[in-house]
Design a protein around this nucleic acid. Sequence first.
RNA 1: GCCAGAGUGGCGGAAUUGGCAGACGCGCGGGAUUCAAAAUCCCGUGCCCGCAAGGGCGUGUGGGUUCGACUCCCACCUCUGGUACCA
Length: 951
Amino acid sequence: MVRYNPAEIEPKWQAYWETRETFRAPDLPEGEKLYVLDMFPYPSGDGLHVGHPEGYTATDIVCRYARMQGKSVLHPMGFDAFGLPAEEHAIKTNTPPRESTEKNIATFRRQLKMLGFSYDWERELATTDVDYFSWTQWIFLLLFDTWFDADQQRGRPIDELPIPAEIAVEGSAAVRRYQDQQRLAFQADALVNWCPALGTVLANEEVIDGLSERGAHPVQRLPLRQWMLRITAYADRLESELDAVDWPESVKTMQRDWIGRSTGAEVDFFLGDQDALAAWTAARRETGFPQAPGDDVLRVYTTRPDTLYGATYMVIAPEHPLLDRLTSESQQAVVHAYCQQAAAKSDRERLELKEKTGVFTGAQAINPINGEAIPIWVADYVLSSYGTGAIMAVPAHDLRDWEFARAHQLSILKVVEPPSDYQPTKDETALAFSDHGVTTCPFAGTGTAINSGSYDGLATADFRARVIEDLANSGTGQGAVNYKLRDWLFSRQRFWGEPFPIWHELDAAGHPTGMLRAVDTDELPVDLPPLEDYSPPGRPEPPLGKAADDWLYTVVDGQRYVRETNTMPQWAGSCWYYLRFIDPRNTAAFVDSAKEAAWMPVDLYVGGAEHAVLHLLYARFWHKVLYDRGYVSTPEPFQRLVNQGMILGELEFTGYQDADHGWISATQVRRNAERQRVDTQSNQPVQEVSVDEELVVKQKDGFYLRDQPAIRVDSRAHKMSKSRGNVVNPDEVVRDFGADSLRLYEMFMGPLEATKPWSMQGVKGVRSFLDRVWRMLVEDRAETLQLNTAVQDVPPTDEQKRIEHKTIQAVTRDVENMDFNTAIARMMEFVNYFTKEPQRPSSSMESLVLLLAPFAPHIAEELWELLGHDQTLAYEPWPSYDEEWTSDPSIEIPVQINGKLRTRLTVAADATANELENAARAEEKVAAQIADREVVKVICIPGRMVNFVIR
RNA sequence: GCCAGAGUGGCGGAAUUGGCAGACGCGCGGGAUUCAAAAUCCCGUGCCCGCAAGGGCGUGUGGGUUCGACUCCCACCUCUGGUACCA
């Protein structure tokens, strides 16, 4: 008995591929190239998740198919291995994080190899490899050496930065400081999440609702010197160049929303007395609108400069630099108290309290459009980090300003008349109020100007254009663009990350002077130092501060320096790994230009949708800098992107119970505003309870408890999680069913991009398909491996030939479209047909084996060998089909009467409309139905259908 | 709230362009084989009425366009993901 035994044949073929280097990619592509990339995994201690092989199998099929079509394929794999879990493990066990990281990588590598993916393992890399992060540091230095030329819209070497004369005269230190301000990698104070109880700084994702994820300790926001990357300089290009890539529209939209480009104007409001206004106005007319606002004005950004006449007050953020100067003596106490309170609140808390709080500063500013003085308030609904951190409030035409004005009795002046047929939006009506029987609400749309002096009667768009021109002429404003995108906070107070290749200059007393020195590129890498202990430092400082002095300090040319002790975030390594895969062992460059130009861009990039914004935006940013500086040949790194869907746990029945464990029907459970499930009658939260399948019975509109037919339960699948206990382990699936079955099942579940639940029965199903494939070709009752006697070297019958060619056509088309589920269904049909055939032509069997090979490569290689071949099938030509054999000579078509199916008709495939109609009329059933009725119309679509419209 | 995407049998899903709804698989029912079981093979399987022939109803809900709608249009409901005062 020679049964299909994946445990035996899978390791056999994996060893074959490895020893013969079957999937080694050439340095340079020969002929048509295809670069297919998987989002490389973070090697967690839990090992591979069944979600990983979903995308990996899809790309593997694409690659194996492409090789059989004669393309040069680059298909690498590596590990995104810096990260928090390894550092936490290091702290707990006081062992270097590299140890656990390497152990985890070994597990991942074993599991990936066990699944038979056709990676070129010679190119494997981990972001934690010193050879790799040496070049990450090199790229950081390139960012450090680059400034963004806004006129040319590209990054240029810092040497080429024009130095203003007034700075040049101040000497070299001033020039260096000026340069440092313009670099793409620069330093700034930014708020960090400092957790005193844990004695460490936390990443944003480690803070939940203002408490630490671990231990739920309070977290404070502290300003700390941080490295930033000037991604905002590239905002325009990051947005517009999305047009050129073949990505899901939803991902492009998410990136555009994240970048959040808006256009409007910056306007200066004079801060002096009315008496001084004339002089200021005259001066501005002379000098024009200055680059920096100066102390005598409050600069605002607005997208609606057409509403300038409706500005009745101004608001600045609590962190605004002018706040102290603006605050009048009498208001000092309230303003101070307000700012203290605002600072204590986390961003989230600020949002949760929806009321618009704020206090008057005591100061006023003069509106340049009409010379009127309006009060300046401070309120935390204005963000310091957007625009200029100050706004002109137009309560009549901005919902937030309206709410604030209503709460603080500030005046509201209408300056835009809505179109006559305008219906207020939901949000607008929600804010309506009635006064003396008149109801008013804000209007945030566009319309016609009123109460706006000489601009009255202008449409919003025209007003906008005109007023921007007028503001520019008077030197009080100019058109401006703003982005929601912020500069990228690039440092972490962590050990397990890439060290920055930067020295800080120290003065005689050992204090930093603020001057920086880049590590020479020939001194890279800056490796991580060994530490005595990995526990948090207990101060809001990085753990690298604990390194030995010989790592921390140096002296160059008599000048003493201390190392930068922050490390880079996990995103850094994943920003450019796709380039290193092209030339992973190069010691002279991060990638050889000829190889880069030959392989780039990545033709297909597959991974989870969770990276839709950050990873993909950061990588595109780095790539554009490398492009500007001439190191890569394409403006975009990833030509085509596909997101694989999430794999959920097995389907479960979920019931709901109240606090006393009484059942509540799912029909009366809703999510409240906080996304908690509550009983709609009592408004009390309910508990989710998993219900055994046995206790559930199906009724017409859903599932109900067998014992309590009034209680409906939900039937759904949940995310896999350790706590829910529904995690599927790929090792076990391979042990029980084999890698080919796992691969095949992951592809058979449904469309690649869909979210879908796991089913172990489904795995069993595809395994029995592979068993059937095996028995179709193998004599399983024989003692030794031999071909099934039904497999014979005979030409196929016409019918067999049609099945074969139709299958090749369908599978080819489906693989091209990445519709792997239907491709597998077509192969199942082929096997269902041929297992019933007493004679199975070996040529047809070979076609099926080749079609199956990308999906289930181990069994395919084994059967290929059995069919008498002594070479791998990895480079065998993909089966071709003949159009002539993909259609049947006669077909069955439906006959409808008034659009309802009445009967079917077997006709020649090329029957004309006339022939169809006559054949249909001759059909007994049809004749009976149309006999005494008037036939109004007959629709005959050759090859499709016939429809009689009768009265 | 806003922006995407989705809703088809008991379950996963299929349906080139508006043209036979439910391919393929799971599950379930029946049968063959077997001392028996596993495995395998064969038949059936959307729901309702009917012994059957046959008929009616069916792609989240309500409406519309069309000879004909899972597919196109309008409104709504539910779910999933993203986002959150960005002036």
